[in-house]
Simulated scan of single mutants.
Amino acid sequence: MPPTNICPRCGDAYEDGVAFCAKDGTRLVSAGQTGDLIGTVVADRYRITSRIGEGGMGQVYLGEHVRMKRKSAITQRTVS
C-alpha cells in the first residue's frame, strides 16, 4: 500500500490510518493534498512556512532551511 500521509515537519511518509509522526509527534497531512504547500518540506531541505504571493504563472512561498534556519523564496509553477 503506498504512503498516504506525510509529516510536514520531517517529510516522512506513513500509511493510511496513522495520524501522527513517529519521530516528532507532528500531525500528518494527506499526501494527495493539492495546491497549498504550507507545512510541507521540499527537497528534504526547506520547510514551507507561508505563501508570499500568487499570479498567473504560479505561487511564491517563504521557506526556511531545516538545518541552517535560512529563509528563502520557493516558487511553485502552475502547469497548464
Rank of each mutant, 00 (worst) to 15 (best):
M1G: 03
P3E: 00
T4C: 00
I6P: 01
C7M: 06
R9L: 14
A13F: 00
D16Q: 04
D16P: 02
A19L: 06
A19C: 11
F20N: 15
F20V: 07
C21R: 03
T26A: 12
R27D: 08
R27H: 11
R27P: 10
L28K: 04
L28I: 13
L28A: 12
L28P: 07
L28S: 11
V29G: 08
V29M: 15
V29L: 15
S30G: 13
G32P: 11
Q33P: 07
G35Q: 06
L37P: 05
I38E: 04
V41P: 00
V41K: 05
A43P: 05
R45P: 04
R45N: 12
R45D: 14
R47S: 09
T49L: 01
T49G: 05
I52Q: 15
I52L: 13
I52N: 15
E54L: 08
G55L: 08
G56S: 10
G56N: 12
G58W: 02
G58Y: 13
Q59D: 05
V60T: 10
L62R: 12
L62I: 07
L62Y: 04
E64Q: 14
E64H: 09
V66D: 05
K69S: 06
A73G: 12
A73E: 07
T75K: 14
Q76G: 13
Q76R: 10
R77S: 13
T78P: 15
V79F: 12
